[in-house]
Design a protein around this nucleic acid. Structure first.
Length: 586
DNA sequence: GCCGTTTTCGGCCCGACTGTTTTCAGTCG
């Protein structure tokens, strides 16, 4: 029923696409794109807010007109402008923008001159040789388009951060040692630790770019060369991922890092700030007139426009520049702050290692405690634990803790939240555990209202501590639950429960924007590996990255606490819940 | 369409690469 922020943003993106194709004022188009970004990154769901009669909060780049459209879309799912545009231009036409090498001008030309509306029709026309006769096109462009169209089975595909980061590191390692190369850095959304990545951006610092380019283009991982110039090349890797290499001189390294790390919106924002100070920022440095006044380091670039250095994870134009200007950047959590992991599996359910192997691996990963949280009986594919098997595991944990040194195992469970919100194991068992982590593993498609009631009922349970992977999305495979996440966060806050930031590469769940909202509500976050094997603790690194993108500090994350402090929180939650339980009656 | 320690109107980030261009538009990041 209620329209999500993502849906509002999608309407704005679509309007921007169509306006661009129609040749509208580019800054008007940008206004819609900025609005889409602002709305989708906004912490609180706007439609329920407006439905309750609240006024829309002031957001940067949202004026009177766009505020009105947000209200219209929140109420109806669409707006008059979009409906009008759909009458003027076929809706499918925006899909042509996804084709590499096709922008708004060419979409317009293809539609007006050849009546082409879809990538399929474009491929057909290109094969028939009709495209090369258009003004501004030629035989080579037509050939490139055919290649792009044939390759483009999954346009705009994004991959999990951990997968792409590994490929980036491999490329960087293969280039290190190249003559004349001073440094090589993976930039772009990998450096910003975005949960998904569309392509790889590598920055090479060198005085001999030609040598480095040649070496790069000859790497075995490189499939096809898409473009190549003296300082920049774009290739398609054999893995199917696109990679860009940019070469820059040492004196511009900082400016180039800023430029190539992005985000685009952040770059635009800092360049505007520079403009107001009669400065110009490009990848070559910060310039006053023709004179370069900064550029060797990132800190220098930010200092030139009166800012302290901004961590890459925050560079999304979501308020970090204003915070930096006011000297109010958060001191972000770091991997070394984590003392434990509250979501770990063993061969008790679908893990690959036993209790002791996981404990030793955790210790090697620098952790002082882990909660053993195997699945409960309803998750049959994972061989979930029933009451009897769980009780045997508890005894085994006691025995192991008695002889383990340097790491403590907590008794826990990843208990299924059933369709009606009940938990999958009886109270008498849950009450014996140190920690109850609850999660949805089935019935992902309940109606929005019922899904919320289900989660709220689970959070109400007196033994419940942490809601695991709250959205249940699997990147590229499963959409997030259709649920008012703002309401879930408020419910967790009211009940004293925590929310998990699951660091499995295909989950990365909570989303960064929801971390920020949880922080504002005072909900503790558990950054968890959801490890199913000894090496999976490595994923915590990416979980911390996502937490940093959500502006989280050490004090916002519950597994940065000492074991004693953690036990206090777990116990406090239980006594709070049971007193509420008594108040409400059984 | 937004916005204002220059402005309520006139601006709005900056540069690389490609292909068709006869001096530059389109696309991309």
């Amino acid at each position: 029923m209620s329209v999500s922020n993502a849906a509002i943003a999608a309407v704005f993106e679509e309007i921007a696409d169509i306006l661009e194709i129609e040749g509208a004022n580019p800054y008007r188009v940008r206004a819609y794109r900025n609005a889409a970004r602002t709305v989708s990154a906004y912490g609180t769901e706007l439609a329920p807010l407006l439905a309750r009669g609240a006024t829309l909060p002031k957001m940067p780049g949202i004026g009177e007109d766009l505020a009105g459209k947000i209200a219209e879309i929140a109420a109806t799912g669409s707006c008059a402008l979009r409906e009008r545009l759909h009458r003027e231009v076929p809706a499918a036409i925006v899909s042509l923008l996804q084709v590499a090498g096709i922008g708004p001008k060419r979409v317009k030309l293809l539609y007006h001159d050849l009546g082409i509306e879809t990538p399929e029709q474009l491929l057909e026309a290109a094969r028939a040789g009709r495209v090369q006769r258009l003004h501004g096109f030629g035989a080579r462009t037509e050939a490139r388009l055919m290649e792009a169209l044939q390759r483009q089975l999954a346009p705009g595909r994004r991959y999990p951060l951990a997968d792409v980061a590994a490929q980036g590191e491999a490329l960087a390692a293969a280039l290190r040692g190249c003559r004349g190369l001073r440094s090589i850095t993976v930039c772009g959304s990998v450096r910003r630790m975005r949960d998904t990545v569309g392509d790889l951006d590598l920055l090479a610092v060198t005085r001999t770019p030609a040598t480095v380019m040649r070496r790069f283009l000859g790497l075995p991982a490189v499939g096809e060369v898409l473009t190549r110039g003296p300082t920049r090349a774009t290739v398609m890797l054999r893995s199917g991922l696109q990679a860009d290499l940019r070469a820059i001189a040492p004196e511009a390294e900082g400016a180039a890092l800023v430029y190539f790390t992005g985000s685009k919106a952040h770059n635009i924002a800092i360049r505007r700030r520079a403009q107001k100070r009669r400065l110009k920022i490009s990848e070559y440095g910060v310039f006053r007139g023709a004179r370069r006044i900064a550029g060797a380091t990132e800190a220098e670039v930010y200092a030139a426009i009166g800012l302290p250095p901004i961590p890459p994870e925050l560079r999304e134009d979501r308020g970090e520049i204003a915070a930096a200007a006011a000297d109010q950047l958060p001191r972000l959590i770091e991997r070394a702050d984590l003392r434990g992991d509250l979501h770990v599996h063993t061969i008790g359910s679908d893990g690959t290692a036993d209790l002791e192997a996981m404990a030793q691996a955790a210790r090697r990963a620098g952790l002082q405690y882990i909660a053993i949280t195997d699945h409960s009986r309803s998750t049959r594919v994972a061989h979930g634990l029933d009451e009897a098997r769980l009780l045997r595991q508890l005894d085994a944990i006691d025995a192991l803790n008695a002889r383990l040194d340097g790491v403590v195992l907590l008794k826990g469970i990843e208990v299924d939240i059933l369709a009606d919100g009940r938990l999958d194991l009886p109270d008498r068992v849950l009450g014996r555990l140190d920690i109850v982590v609850g999660a949805v593993h089935a019935h992902f498609d309940l109606p929005r209202r019922r899904q919320l009631l289900r989660l709220q009922r689970a959070l109400d349970h007196r033994h419940f501590h942490v809601l695991a992977h709250p959205s249940c999305r699997l990147i590229g495979t499963r959409e997030p639950l259709d649920v008012d996440i703002s309401a879930v966060i408020r419910s967790a806050a009211q009940r004293g429960c925590g929310l998990e930031l699951n660091a499995q590469p295909q989950r990365m769940d909570l989303l960064d924007t929801h971390c920020r909202e949880a922080q504002a509500q005072g909900v503790p976050i558990s950054i968890a590996s959801d490890a199913h094997g000894p090496r999976d603790f490595d994923w915590l690194h990416y979980g911390v990255g996502q937490a940093r993108r959500g502006w989280l500090r050490r004090e916002d994350v519950v597994n940065t606490r000492t074991l004693d402090e953690l036990r206090q929180w777990l116990g406090a939650r239980s006594s709070q819940a049971s007193s509420e339980h008594r108040r409400r009656g059984p």
